[in-house]
Structures are given as structure tokens and as C-alpha cells.
Amino acid sequence: MKPFEYERADDVAGAVATLERDPDAKYLAGGTNLVDLMRLRVETPSRLVDVNRLDLGGIVVEADGAVRIGAAVRNSDLAADPVIRERYPVLSRALLSAASGQLRNMASVGGNLLQRTRCVYFMDSSKPCNKREPGSGCPAIVGVSRELAILGASEHCIATHPGDMAVALTALDAIVHFETAAGPDSLPMSGFHRLPGDDPSRDTNLPPGALITSVEVPPLSFGGRSTYRKARDRRSYAFALASVAAALDVEDGIIRDLRIAVGAVSHKPWRATVAEELLRGSPATPDRFEAAIRAELDIARPTEQNAFKIPLVTRLVVGVLDELAHP
């Protein structure tokens, strides 16, 4: 690991000012991804600004019914929170399907949003990778791509966002609040992560040096009727091959409203807007579910190794919506 300076931030403004002064510095929260990447020499920060002692905790129900989650809240605490379990089971389920008990006790909400791809070429500093070293090439496209993107990839990068929590937050239209030297600002989850395009080095649209302070989940009348399903190579403690976060509002067999987001298929959690549009007002039947997700996946461009994700996502979505339609 490359040597680095360490400082414990006392307040948000001070933490942001440090990164403004030293662009090679990084914030440290749970460290579950960053420390590992530093050990692999994928990340080589000059300085770590420890944000764990900042006042960024708490899960608060606001006057308008939204739930504000502090950026430092640990994944385990968020998953177990009674309000989250009742109002947004999809979020609890997504968190509980991720990592291990130990890692969930460490990982923060803010850090989880910023976790890097698990593409094997990105993680191996001896290999070319446009995300880690812009312009060096992407060996994944013709290489080991089984776990990588089928939607929204580019000729420069086919990495996926590997997380589960962000998929649920995308389905829930959450808003990410952050602080920069210019003051507070926010991004909706739909615009938080980005597609790789010709600059895969950037995972998100967060401005440089921004510190995530909280995540706001707006009220959702049918949020209680939501869930998360994840397909992976082993039954526990593995990244998704594909996952689905969904919420469904059905009356008399007709879909009034719904949310679908798909994970591990793109550089960002993929909100299935085409499928949602087709299903709003339609009967809640498996054949409609299947037609809708097939339309969504029409633009999928898989590699030979990950073409299995198309039928996998199709079955996951049909299965999850059918389960939600018949509680």
C-alpha cells in the first residue's frame, strides 16, 4: 500500500476544504472497498480524510413523509431499521442480500453508493483498463465478461455497478444530498451513476471533492409492496449476476403504478422505464410482465459470455412482479 497522510475530520466544511486543497485525497468511511483497492494499488490516495466521526448518522422521518438517511449509517443498521422494513422492504432486502454480516456492519450508505466495479481487469493493476487508466484499453470486451454489462456499455468500458442498495434506491427515486466547497447540492438516483461513454473513469456525476451527507427516500404509497431478488453464483455472500428491485400497486388485477430497477447489468442501476410505461394500466399477468421486460431488454448488447443475463433478468422480473401481484 502506498503511504498516505491521515486526518480525522471534525466538521463537513473542514473535510470538504481538505479535498479542495488536495485533490488526491479521499474520504474514508467504512473502508470495505477503498482499503481493499488501496492494498491492490488500484487506489493510491495521498491522504485519507476520515469522515466517520462527523455527525452524518440517523434515520429520520421528515414532515413530508420522506425518510432521510445519514450518509454514515451502516448498512446493517439501515437494513434492520423498523421504518425501512415497513415502508421500503425492497431496501432492507437489497441490503440484506449484500456482502456479509461483518461487511454490512462496516459499510456506510455514502460509501456503498461509491463502491467501484468488481470487473477483474479494473481490480488488477497489471492489466489495461480504461476506468483505472484512461486510454489503456478494455480487455474485458473480448475477455472475461461473464459478470459485466449488457445495457448502456460503450466500446471503452463494459463495467457494472456491483451494488445492491443503489438498485433499490433507484427504484425508490431516492435523492443523494452532498456538500462541496460551493455549498449543499443534490442529485436524483436516476442521474447519480452514469454510463461509461468515452470517459469510464467517472462512475458518477458527483462533482470532484463532494461529500455525500444523506440520502432522501421520498414517500411511496405502495412502498410496502416491494421486494428485491438477486441471482448469484452461490446462495449467500456473492455479487449479483443480475438483480431486480420492484414495487407494485395493483387494484382489481390492474397495475396502477410500479417501479422496476435492474442491477448488475449496466454501469448504473438500470431503471426499467420502458417496461414500467408498458405495464402502467395493464393487467398484472405474467405474459404482460414478460412482454414488458423483453421490450426493455431490446437494446441489450451482451457479450458471448454474458448473454445468459437476458433470460435471467427476464425470469427475475416476471418472478418478482408475479410475487408482488399475489401477496
Partner: peptide
């Protein structure tokens, strides 16, 4: 009192 992975925990953060 919480279980964590000691390999991913930087000692410097534990004051």
C-alpha cells in the same frame, strides 16, 4: 461489540 473484518479496518481510525 460489532463483528468486523480486521483486515479491512485501518488501525489509525480506531482511536
Amino acid at each position: 461489540s460489532r463483528r468486523v473484518n480486521a483486515c479491512l479496518t485501518l488501525a489509525v481510525t480506531l482511536d
